[in-house]
């Protein structure tokens, strides 16, 4: 049996922080490690679990330093431990609102306000929800976005994995331990996952992949019964019987709780410069939440370290009045 022990959180001790980091995923935690080592009074606020999205994947195989891979949650816990070791305080709570424009920033967590001279937004992203006819009523009732969480509930059942990127293929491979009955539905004519993941997938000869497929609807009364799909090449519709659907079709950045004057792009990702600076003074952003091309643990960590370094620079010239 596996035991996961979350080594607790301390209560905030300061009235005003040098830095508040929003989000305890790889970006926020790495920013914390660097800020702590720069001796900034730092508070990191996390709503759910340290490790962020990475905690929902069983094994990371491409994060350097772990030739046999490392558990996503385990890596998150280790990063947290490392940040705390350098003096970062970790608070569990949801940031509901921010006031980022003044010299001192106000961060609202449930009923309290925390003040800080600077902020790093590392709130990451959440899975994009499947939005087709019939999908709404099956969210949490057969449509899932977390194979690690819900996979075992589909033991020996028929499932469909939607998507063809890294997450889809990784999690589809993970699901093979619970059921052999897996069908992939991908809208492009090919998969976009890393080649090594594709190879592993193709080793499973029985596994069916529908390419060029557009999902038309999810059908069923109380339970999911089938998915209707259109073959975009032939324009023909067909149905696939299924009990569950695991969806990996990209991300939506978590920026809805932030100041409206923060500059974001048309998809909601925060715009930053090379130093992770946003358009607001003293406000930086890092990780999956920023506009960029490649969203991984290592790139999130990299952004986080740069953001922390920029904060340190910013605070050198910070005058209290």
């Amino acid at each position: 049996m596996m035991l996961n022990l979350n080594k607790g959180s301390n209560l905030p001790s300061e009235k005003t922080y040098d830095l508040i980091i929003i989000g305890g995923g790889p970006a926020g935690l790495t920013a914390g490690i660097y800020a702590g080592r720069s001796r900034l009074k730092t508070l990191l606020i996390e709503e759910l679990v340290v490790g962020g999205q990475a905690s929902t994947t069983e094994r990371l195989e491409n994060y350097p330093g772990f030739p046999d891979g490392i558990g996503g949650y385990e890596l998150g816990l280790k990063m947290e431990e490392q940040a705390k070791k350098f003096g970062v305080e970790v608070l569990f709570g949801k940031v509901e609102k921010t006031e980022l424009e003044g010299k001192f920033k106000n961060i609202y967590v449930e009923e309290k306000i925390y003040k800080s001279k600077s902020v790093i937004i590392a709130s990451g992203a959440t899975p994009r929800r499947l939005n087709v006819k019939g999908s709404e009523k099956f969210h949490g009732k057969g449509i899932s976005y977390c194979a690690t969480c819900d996979g075992a509930l589909f033991t020996d059942k028929k499932i469909i994995v939607v998507g063809g990127g890294n997450s889809a293929v990784e999690e589809g491979l993970f699901m093979l331990r619970y059921t052999k009955d897996i069908i992939f539905v991908q809208d492009l004519p090919f998969l976009t996952a890393e080649k090594i993941l594709q190879e592993r997938l193709f080793e499973n000869k029985d596994l069916k992949i529908y390419y060029n497929s557009e999902i038309i609807s999810i059908n069923g009364e109380d339970k999911i019964e089938s998915m209707s799909v259109k073959d975009k090449k032939t324009n023909k519709n067909f149905d696939i019987q299924t009990d569950g659907i695991f969806v990996y079709i990209g991300l939506v950045p978590k920026t809805d709780f932030l100041d409206k004057n923060l500059s974001i792009n048309e998809y909601g990702y925060i715009k930053v410069d090379n130093n992770m600076k946003t358009n607001l003074e003293g406000v930086f952003a890092a990780g999956d939440v920023i506009e960029k091309n490649f969203r991984q643990v290592i790139t999130a960590a990299s952004d986080g370290s740069i953001a922390a370094k920029s904060v340190e620079k910013y605070l050198e010239n910070f005058k209290e009045v």
């Binding site: 759910l48 977390c146 690690t148 075992a152």
Partner: peptide
Amino acid sequence: VTHTCPYCPS
């Protein structure tokens, strides 16, 4: 819950 769900303890 399941034992492998990081969101469940909360």
